[in-house]
Design a protein around this nucleic acid. Sequence first.
DNA 1: AAGTTTTAGGACTTCATTGTCTTAAATGTA
DNA 2: TACATTTAAGACAATGAAGTCCTAAAACTT
Lengths: 150, 150
Amino acid sequence: MLFSKTSAYGIRAVLYLSMQKGHPFVLIREIAENLNLSYHFLGKIFQNLSQGGLITSYKGPNGGVRLARKPEDIFVLDVVRVLEGMDLFTECVFGLDKCSDHFPCPLHHKWFRIRKEISEMMASTNFAQLALDTNTFDFRIKTVSVGTPI
Amino acid sequence: MLFSKTSAYGIRAVLYLSMQKGHPFVLIREIAENLNLSYHFLGKIFQNLSQGGLITSYKGPNGGVRLARKPEDIFVLDVVRVLEGMDLFTECVFGLDKCSDHFPCPLHHKWFRIRKEISEMMASTNFAQLALDTNTFDFRIKTVSVGTPI
DNA sequence: AAGTTTTAGGACTTCATTGTCTTAAATGTA
DNA sequence: TACATTTAAGACAATGAAGTCCTAAAACTT
């Protein structure tokens, strides 16, 4: 899996917020239930997203979290940067400190090309686009029955 | 880092064997020292490479490990397949079981394209090529002094 | 002011990966 | 046969990521 769980959950959560009509504060508990994630763990992720300036939070009744800006202006890369930093995009495939453009390891150039595509993909994909592609997709892991009980 | 440490070490070790003249049995201890890796951990990795048919091992004096076939016929993907399986190349970016070509998550298609490039890169890079690019690169993490002591 | 709701923050647990250690098995040598 | 050398294999320990829990702080309600 390309992302850490933290990033995967964070992206899914930001996507959830991106799909709200208007931009109301949404309960972290609601998001956790709908995405079938641990409430406490997601709370921690939102702490970081909030410190990173991607979402705004509000305590107390009618509080919750919401996007700090429009979905069009938040990119997948923003979430990844806040939640795991940019090491993923600068580190050697082998994890070697001394590998660099100037002194490349044997996979350096090939990996550089692919890594660039990954970061360009993330930098060019905003949450408004993602939200469009999400309408047909149920992000919950456990599928819930929606039929009328007999 | 794209690879797990296990895969990174495995690739470096196979590369080390690929750079030998002839195809002698080489001590795991020697490889571990030259690549600055844990001997025991590398031993375990070689167990798997051996079970996976990529290298041949021989016990006792003058024993060690060597490639099971020519470097030209071993590809990076072979090592990764043996050491971590192919999950990396089939799994959803978000880790969602139900995501599939037929029922794609919102990043499915973009990630599919990149994942394909990664696997094609690994499937087309053999260890003879890598060895050529390694002649100028010192794979040891700690650099050792090679000057004549005064 | 007292109590409720909600996020914030820190301490703690669990789990998978990474790394270490010890013993067993295979092979060679004297 | 006894002993040395080397990989094989399994048990164990350390680390870091993932996940849980509890208390504090902020905001609202009465």
